[in-house]
């Protein structure tokens, strides 16, 4: 081992072995009673719906659920794609409207229409006609306003570009956060091709594009700026846990866009029956009841009663269809424009 090249060679051979071992190992025994669910981190965490859903589902069906946190929704999908030849997960949770096309192209999911779908899920929430994904909750992007600040709340998306809001808006980086990408899609849905002009006008009013929802919303709650992009249901959290109506979600006349989150069955899953049972369960009233106070999103099942704090979440009458333009290209254009 005198020669450094020798060490490098040794390491590469070692890498190959570790890789082979990792791919080769895998235990099929007991899989028929276990459902492996990949989800994003906040779904699995103590404050997310994961632990409670696991308990209810296990009680009801006798399966055991293994919840695996993969980071965020995009990482759920990319992990499943990497494991495509030998899938470990049975169900993927958190594939939303923006990831649908990628999920379809990758071919890691198989369509499944859960039992009770007709009864529980309104037509406008169905993510695709072939039921590649089962929708389980939805939310509406909106601007949240701090009512204790000195600004008058803007009355429309267009008014956000007004001189009164110079440096007063916290947005999130569309590359790193769902509400960030959601706001971009919203401007595309409202302004079409001319959304770049809108961003040009909005530019001086943006305090920062925060790297992630937690960073941006944290800044907002700390009082750094009075306007932030989040969901209409955000005020419900402050109502429920802080009895505060200080933060208000604004409804704009141009209309809003909606994020629908779905779950899907993995192609070649080790436990197809278990996956089907989990998806059936996910849209049942029992499971849907857990979502409002853990996900802070609306359950798809409209028969589920909402908690009182949801009165702080304003209803949005005008839901816009998702823009057809390429969101990734728009992201590059808008970021170019902003950094100029």
């Amino acid at each position: 081992m005198k020669n450094p090249l020798c060490i490098v060679l040794f390491m590469i051979i070692g890498a190959a072995f570790v890789n082979m071992y990792a791919r080769g190992s895998g235990d099929d025994a007991g899989r028929s009673r276990e459902v492996v669910v990949y989800a994003y981190d906040s779904f699995v965490s103590e404050w997310g719906p994961g632990p409670e859903l696991k308990r209810l589902f296990e009680e009801k069906t006798g399966y055991t659920v293994t919840l695996v946190s993969c980071g965020d929704a995009a990482e759920v999908l990319s992990r499943a794609v990497r494991e495509k030849s030998k899938p470990r997960a049975d169900v993927l949770v958190g594939i939303d409207t923006t990831l649908l096309a990628q999920a379809r192209a990758s071919g890691v999911l198989v369509p499944y229409r859960p039992k009770g779908a007709d009864e529980h899920i309104p037509d406008d929430l169905v993510l695709s006609d072939d039921w590649l994904l089962t929708p389980y909750d939805w939310g509406v992007f909106s601007i949240i306003c701090d009512t204790e600040s000195d600004i008058a709340p803007p009355a429309s998306l267009e008014e956000l570009t007004g001189a009164a809001y110079r440096g007063r808006i916290i947005l999130m980086d569309p590359r790193m956060s769902t509400p960030g990408a959601g706001f971009l899609a919203w401007t595309m849905a409202v302004y079409g091709e001319r959304h770049t002009d809108y961003w040009e006008r909005l530019k001086p009013n943006i305090l920062t594009l925060a790297p992630g929802w937690d960073a941006g919303y944290g800044l907002f709650v700390a009082g750094e700026a009075p306007l932030v992009i989040s969901y209409t249901t955000s005020p419900a959290y402050h109502q429920e846990y802080e009895q505060s109506s200080r933060f208000r979600a604004l409804v704009f006349p141009e209309g809003h866009i909606r994020q629908i989150e779905g779950a899907g069955m993995v192609r070649g899953a080790g436990n197809q029956d278990g996956a089907a049972a989990f998806l059936d369960f996910l849209i049942s009233s029992e499971a849907q009841n857990v979502l409002p106070l853990t996900q802070w999103m609306y359950p798809v099942n409209a028969s589920v009663p909402l908690p009182d704090s949801y009165r702080a979440a304003p209803a949005v009458d005008r839901i816009l269809p998702l823009p057809d333009g390429d969101i990734k290209a728009a992201m590059d254009r808008v970021l170019d424009l902003l950094s100029r």
Binding site: A74, L77, Q102, S106, M176, I206, T208, A210, P211, S339
Partner: peptide, 28 residues
């Protein structure tokens, strides 16, 4: 570092780490 760079740096700015983060998430 990218959290502090994005938070306080130029709006819409980027770093290699951010570009990699974005690219690594796109399965295609």
């Amino acid at each position: 570092s990218f959290v502090i760079v994005l938070m306080f740096g130029t709006i819409g700015g980027t770093t290699l780490e951010v570009e990699l983060y974005q690219a690594a998430r796109n399965v295609t």
